[in-house]
């Protein structure tokens, strides 16, 4: 295998219902940095049916080239079909790096493709870098226990592949009108030869908790003491119009469902404001919220590690501080209301 044959950084573009997944836009941002450092092209690989128009967005977010497979057989994601397209395209154009979102689709596809190539695949990456000279991808992920990060390398194979967690990389500000090269590819696959069929897609009508979409998150930890104590978190969240987050210990105690868990084995969040109340600040928790805009910690132990990870910290008892905060906030809001009303 001659590594010089392999050039360029690729991002697998995940799309659904005619929109590009936000994790793919984030990866274009991260991929741009890697490509620039190496002095190579950044390409998107787009597979689907009626998806060609999405190339516009992909260029605006930083890609130089987009490889497009636009065929009815790709209407729904299926490992078997998408994998074939990706393998064929990779074989033909030989990228040095391919990045995927660590979503269920991205993981499924990347695992299958890496096995066939074969090559190494780093899972759930949270930090990416590349060696300028060698092109060696430095993909770091929280290792078992999570208090340690491990940099995973794939020295002897190309392309190098990684799935990357959503909400940890930053998308570029889109440049309107930025364009690039579209390379259209087709694949000869017969529906009869495919062993899986998507019969139906059922959307959940009840909206599930998606704390990763909230602007404000009030997260509580074991320091709230009990299920009843944890209701204080709900009260503050309601007052501020935010979502409720939790540490793993709280989820395990059964005070709230797993969908609310922030951290390594929960959700990664980047709200504009994050409250960590009665949370000690274990690294597994921090990795899930450290990119929040404004982090406010309330903890009665002044030595708690959370104070190393926040913008503003209050050393105190949650049951004393939070009720005052709720009261003050309600007062402030009603003042706002009054002044808003008098304005118009």
């Amino acid at each position: 295998m001659d590594f010089r044959d392999y050039k360029g950084v690729w991002v697998f573009i995940e799309q659904k219902d005619e929109v590009v997944a936000s994790v793919s836009l984030e990866l274009l941002g991260a991929g741009r940095k890697l490509a620039d450092k190496r002095g190579v092209e950044l390409a998107g690989i787009l597979i689907g049916e009626n998806v060609k128009h999405l190339t516009k967005t992909i260029f605006e977010y930083g890609a130089d080239t987009v490889y497009v497979y636009d065929q009815p057989i790709f209407k729904h994601y299926r490992t078997e079909t998408y994998m074939k397209a990706l393998l064929e395209c990779t074989e033909k154009y030989k990228p040095e790096i391919i990045l995927f979102g660590a979503t269920s689709t991205g993981k499924d596809l990347a695992s299958a493709v890496a096995t066939d190539m074969p090559t190494g695949l780093t899972a759930d990456t949270t930090e990416l870098d590349v060696e300028e000279e060698t092109g060696l991808l430095l993909a770091s992920r929280p290792a078992f226990g999570g208090n340690i990060m491990a940099t995973i390398l794939c020295k002897k194979y190309r392309p190098q592949m990684a799935t990357v967690r959503s909400k940890v990389m930053k998308a570029l500000t889109p440049q309107t009108g930025r364009t690039g090269k579209i390379i259209e590819e087709t694949i000869s696959l017969k529906e009869e030869d495919i062993r899986t069929k998507v019969l139906e897609i059922v959307k959940e009508t009840v909206k599930k908790v998606r704390i990763d979409e909230a602007d404000i998150i009030v997260a509580g930890g074991k320091g709230l003491g009990s299920f009843e104590g944890f209701q204080l978190i709900h009260q503050l969240a309601e007052t501020l119009g935010g979502a409720v987050g939790a540490s793993r210990d709280v989820v395990e105690a059964g005070w709230i469902e797993h969908a609310h868990q922030v951290g390594q084995t929960g959700v990664t969040v980047t709200p504009k404001i994050y409250f960590a109340i009665g949370i000690s600040g274990a690294i597994q928790h921090i990795v899930g919220m450290k990119n929040s805009g404004l982090i406010i910690a309330i903890n009665k132990d002044k030595e708690a590690p959370i104070f190393q990870a926040c913008h503003f910290g209050i050393v105190g008892d949650a049951f004393e501080i939070v009720p005052i905060l709720i009261e003050q906030f309600q007062m402030a809001l009603s003042r706002e209301k009054v002044s808003n009303n008098s304005k118009g």
């Binding site: 090559t119 780093t122 340690i148 491990a150 940099t151 995973i152 794939c154 190393q308």
Partner: peptide, 14 residues
């Protein structure tokens, strides 16, 4: 195994 564990490090705390 194509992947190898390179260096291990404690992430710098903010």
């Amino acid at each position: 195994s194509p992947t190898i564990v390179g260096k291990m490090f404690t992430p710098p705390r903010p």
